Simulated assay, not measured.
Amino acid sequence: MTPLDTPAAPSTASPADAPVLTIPADAPFFVVMNAGSGRRQTDATRAVLERELGGAGRRFELRLVDDPAELAASARMAVEDAIAQSGVVVGAGGDGTLCAVAQATLGSGCPFAVLPRGTFNYFSRDHGIPADLDASTRLLLTARAYPVQVGVVNGRMFLVNASLGLYPKLLEDRETYKRQFGRSRLIALLSAAATLLRRHRHLRLHIEHEGQMREIRTSTLFVGNNRLQLEQIGMKESALLEQGLLAAIAPRAIGRLAQIALSILGAAGRMSDADNVMSFTFRSITVTHPSKRRRRVKIATDGELAWLDMPLEFHVAPEPLFLLKPEPDIALANRS
């Protein structure tokens, strides 16, 4: 592993330094869920909410969103209602759904909670939130809201990661495979292998970091905001995320076989052993194309794809997300 730049010095203040919030005992819950996850999962979620929250005498509303394009608007309405009633907004789904709901709460001061219903659930696992639906629902009744860091690229928030280049293509192909063969980690791995075996273009990028400009040629630029995900692939920068930083990873321009070998190292948790990967930590960077022409690039944020105009401004959000999660010692024990 070779550094792209010297790691940024940790900041003395970060969004995570904000105070912990205690949730009122009668606070209602406004649960926003993507109905596209399926009738069975929706029915199971409703049943658990009625049993755990309704049984405890807590008011809740389950707001199902049939059209993913309406998810952001539904989340904003939930935040408005939660603020008016001193309640909590809850996202139910995978990391992409959680990010869309969290975006609406960021900067509002409204507490945010999650019910993990995805395949990988990196965000909830990193914060020690149980994957079991019953347990994560019961947690809503007792948890406090801790400030947690989120990343932003051109106004678009991400909880786990943001990327351009080959990684968005991997995600795009993965969704195609899932629609054909179902959702599972095995399908995700098979899809990734098929994508890596095809030809892919390399990116030429200028990265401005702490007043210095560096040109790189890479298959993908990956920006991580999740300790668990970075630890799993063996990135030493993972520990620095707790100090108010994001981590950037950029493989040097390599061929298909070398790319597959790099992916195997990552799967084995040994990516830091690779000589053809550049990495660094930062609070903010600007990414441009050497031509300086106006360009639109495909970006993936927490698994959701979008087209953004360059330059790309990646930075740590100045305000925290107030997340309901277990107390620190319990959260650490629950991480997996």
Results as ranks from 00 to 15, higher is better:
F29N: 02
M77G: 15
L305F: 06
D81P: 06
L115H: 08
G36M: 03
L71G: 01
A8D: 09
P15H: 01
R296V: 08
Q180N: 12
S279W: 10
L305E: 01
Y122H: 05
E70V: 11
V31K: 02
T220N: 09
L246F: 05
V153F: 00
L62K: 06
L197V: 04
E61F: 03
A56G: 12
V89W: 04
R217H: 06
F314Y: 07
V316K: 01
G165H: 05
A27D: 02
E70M: 15
L64E: 04
R174H: 00
L197T: 04
I264H: 08
A69I: 09
A35C: 08
E175G: 00
L4Q: 14
A73W: 04
F123Q: 00
P68K: 06
L205P: 05
M33R: 09
V223M: 03
R59C: 09
R117H: 11
N226E: 14
S184T: 14
L171G: 00
L139H: 07
N276V: 11
A268R: 13
G224V: 01
A13P: 10
E80L: 13
A13G: 07
R270D: 05
L228I: 14
F29T: 02
A18C: 07
R40L: 14
N226M: 13
L241V: 06
P7M: 01
P116D: 14
H202N: 14
V223N: 03
A56K: 12
C99Q: 00
R214S: 10
N276P: 07
V297F: 04
E215L: 10
I83Q: 06
S284W: 04
A274H: 02
L171K: 00
T195C: 07
I249P: 06
R39A: 15
S11Y: 07
A306T: 11
S219Q: 13
V160N: 05
N34R: 02
F30H: 03
P168M: 08
A247W: 00
G266V: 09
V31E: 01
V20C: 06
R125Q: 14
P24N: 13
P147H: 08
D67F: 06
R58C: 08
P111Y: 01
A13E: 03
F158Q: 00
G96F: 01
A131E: 07
C99A: 06
G155Q: 00
Y146R: 07
E208F: 03
T6Y: 12
F280H: 08
R256D: 10
H206L: 15
L53N: 05
